[in-house]
Nucleic acid binder design. Structure first.
Length: 269
DNA sequence: ATCGGGACCTGCTTGC
DNA sequence: TGCAAGCAGGTCCCGA
């Protein structure tokens, strides 16, 4: 489910419910996620107060001075706020009980997500991440300079978290359509001005998706259980074989690095 | 140094 | 109708 807009939607949705609230207790029903949940995690966090929730790429960082709880939603994860007594479902793996009878509930059918305890503000998974796409550090000059001599196709290139964080399969395809760039072109062959288009398309599509509460394809839900509404605004993702919204020709579907890619061979060069 | 591929999982859709 | 294959928002890690 979650790319940056969905993670950011989740962060904004839960913030008001968890900030300055004390963790009463934690229940772990399934510890085998992408990485096994530390058996000591529940004891370490009980009694601490959540000072705030930050985001780095697709990671949510719960600040519990002096510890940090790092949550990744993987492919199918979500966080919801539910009332005490709400019966957990099959894939509700972790409950974080808060003051005032609320529970922050982690749900993840495929279990590709993770719930990790950080002793400090650092973690190996955060060490080599690229810039935030909505920050000024992410700009055309950076991408252009970094991609010289790189033969890797542009779509997997912008989906690489070491290059820029937060851009997943949906928004990579959308941004390339919006900037009229073919997904298979080698990143090292794109000009600076094409990178200017691409960067502004990425920022644009992510910003608009956040405004709509993210994209719900099947199971993404916001903290209150509502879906996101950006799906209606997708130009190419999930539309292989259908007509291009701009020119009407049939959209092509290919595979790149084991991910499906849809594009318009007429509009994107 | 870069890659492509496999791995980790469950659930839903599709086709025989 | 049943069953197996294929595919799905991510990304680490290995070997070529």
């Amino acid at each position: 489910m979650p790319e940056l807009p969905e993670v950011e939607t989740t962060r904004r949705g839960i913030l008001g419910h968890v900030q300055n609230r004390k963790i009463v207790k934690i229940e772990v029903r399934q510890a085998n996620l992408r990485w096994k949940i530390d058996p000591k995690l529940a004891d370490r966090l009980a009694g601490l107060t959540i000072d705030g929730v930050d985001r780095r790429g697709k990671y949510l960082l719960f600040r519990l001075s002096p510890l940090t709880l790092m949550v990744h939603l993987g492919m199918s994860g979500s966080l919801r706020i539910v009332d005490q007594g709400t019966v957990p479902g099959k894939h509700d793996h972790v409950d974080i009980h808060l003051e005032e009878s609320k529970i922050l509930r982690y749900h993840d059918p495929r279990r590709f997500g993770s719930v990790l305890l950080l002793e400090a503000d650092r973690h190996p998974l955060l060490e080599h991440l690229g810039p935030e796409p909505l920050s000024e550090d992410f700009n055309a000059e950076y991408l252009y300079a970094r991609s010289r001599k790189c033969k890797r196709p542009i779509k997997p290139y912008i989906m690489d978290g070491g290059i820029v964080v937060g851009v997943g399969n949906i928004y990579a395809a959308e941004a390339l359509f919006l900037s009229a760039i073919r997904p298979g072109i080698a990143s090292g062959r794109l000009s600076l001005s094409r990178y200017q288009n691409l960067v502004s398309s990425i920022k644009d599509v992510l910003t608009k998706a956040i405004e709509k509460g993210g994209t719900t394809l099947r199971d993404f839900v916001r903290e209150d259980g509502q879906p996101g509404y950006f799906k209606q605004e997708l130009f190419v993702y999930g539309r292989g074989g259908e007509p291009c919204i701009k020119c009407g020709s049939v959209l092509k579907e290919i595979r790149q690095a084991q991910r499906s890619t849809v594009y318009c061979a007429v509009c994107q060069k």
